[in-house]
Amino acid sequence: MFTTNVGSVDRAFRIVLGLVLIALVFVGPQTPLGWLGLVPLLTGFMRTCPLYSLFGLSTCSTK
């Protein structure tokens, strides 16, 4: 269904960024915009990014 196009460093960055943004909902400025963190969090866990697929990009290492 989906092809993997998110590499390990990109994946780790997306997960951390997603968690930080979601934390903004509960601490700090408590802005609802923090829920946008779900996007990088989900793309990190799924290891695929729809925008990367659209533009034919990949951060996976080649073997």
Score class of each variant (00 low, 15 high):
Val20Gly: 12
Phe55Tyr: 11
Cys49Ser: 10
Val9Phe: 10
Met46Ile: 14
Val6Gln: 02
Thr43Glu: 15
Cys49Gln: 09
Val9His: 08
Trp35Leu: 15
Val39Asp: 02
Val27His: 06
Phe55Glu: 01
Leu24Gln: 09
Met1Val: 08
Met46Trp: 09
Leu41Cys: 07
Phe55Thr: 09
Leu19Cys: 07
Thr4His: 10
Pro32Asn: 13
Arg11His: 03
Trp35Arg: 07
Leu57Gln: 13
Thr48Cys: 14
Val20Lys: 04
Phe45Val: 15
Thr62Pro: 12
Pro29Arg: 02
Leu42Asp: 02
Val9Pro: 01
Phe55Lys: 05
Leu41Val: 08
Ile15Gln: 00
Gly44Asp: 11
Cys60Ala: 05
Phe45Pro: 07
Leu42Trp: 02
Gly56Gln: 02
Gln30Cys: 12
Leu41Ser: 03
Leu51Glu: 08
Val16Lys: 00
Arg47Pro: 02
Phe45Arg: 02
Asn5Asp: 07
Leu36Met: 12
Thr3Tyr: 13
Pro29Asn: 10
Thr3Glu: 15
Met1Ala: 04
Thr4Arg: 15
Asp10Leu: 01
Lys63Tyr: 06
Leu51Tyr: 05
Cys60Asn: 10
Thr48Arg: 13
Tyr52Asn: 11
Met1His: 10
Leu36Pro: 03
Phe55Val: 13
Val16His: 02
Gly37Met: 10
Gly56Trp: 03
Phe45Asp: 11
Leu38Tyr: 01
Gly7Arg: 00
Val27Cys: 09
Arg11Ala: 05
Gly56Val: 03
Leu36His: 05
Gly28Thr: 04
Leu21Cys: 07
Gly37Val: 08
Cys49Lys: 05
Leu38Ser: 06
Arg11Pro: 02
Val25Pro: 01
Ser58Cys: 09
Thr48Gln: 14
Met1Cys: 06
Thr62Ala: 15
Met1Pro: 10
Pro40His: 01
Phe2Tyr: 07
Pro29Lys: 03
Leu36Asp: 03
Ser58Tyr: 01
Leu54Tyr: 09
Tyr52Lys: 05
Ser53Asn: 10
Thr43Cys: 15
Ser61Tyr: 11
Leu33Gln: 04
Thr31His: 11
Val6Ala: 08
Gly7Thr: 02
Pro29Phe: 03
Leu33Gly: 04
Lys63Val: 12
Phe55Pro: 07
Gly18Trp: 00
Leu41Phe: 07
Phe26Gln: 06
Gly34Asp: 14
Lys63Gln: 13
Thr59His: 09
Pro40Arg: 00
Gln30Tyr: 05
Gly7Phe: 01
Pro50Tyr: 08
Ser8Cys: 06
Leu19His: 00
Ser53Met: 09
Val20Met: 12
Gly34Met: 13
Ala23Glu: 00
Gln30Trp: 04
Arg11Glu: 06
Thr43Ile: 14
Phe13Lys: 12
Val16Asp: 09
Gln30Glu: 13
Cys49Phe: 01
Phe55Cys: 09
Tyr52His: 12
Leu41Met: 04
Gly37Ile: 08
Asp10Glu: 12
Val6Thr: 00
Tyr52Thr: 03
Gly28Leu: 11
Thr31Lys: 03
Thr48Phe: 11
Asp10Asn: 12
Pro29Ile: 05
Phe2Ala: 06
Cys60Asp: 07
Thr59Leu: 00
Phe45Glu: 08
Met46Ala: 15
Pro32Ile: 13
Ser58Ala: 11
Gln30Thr: 13
Leu41Tyr: 02
Gly18Gln: 00
Trp35Gln: 04
Cys49Asn: 11
Gly44Tyr: 04
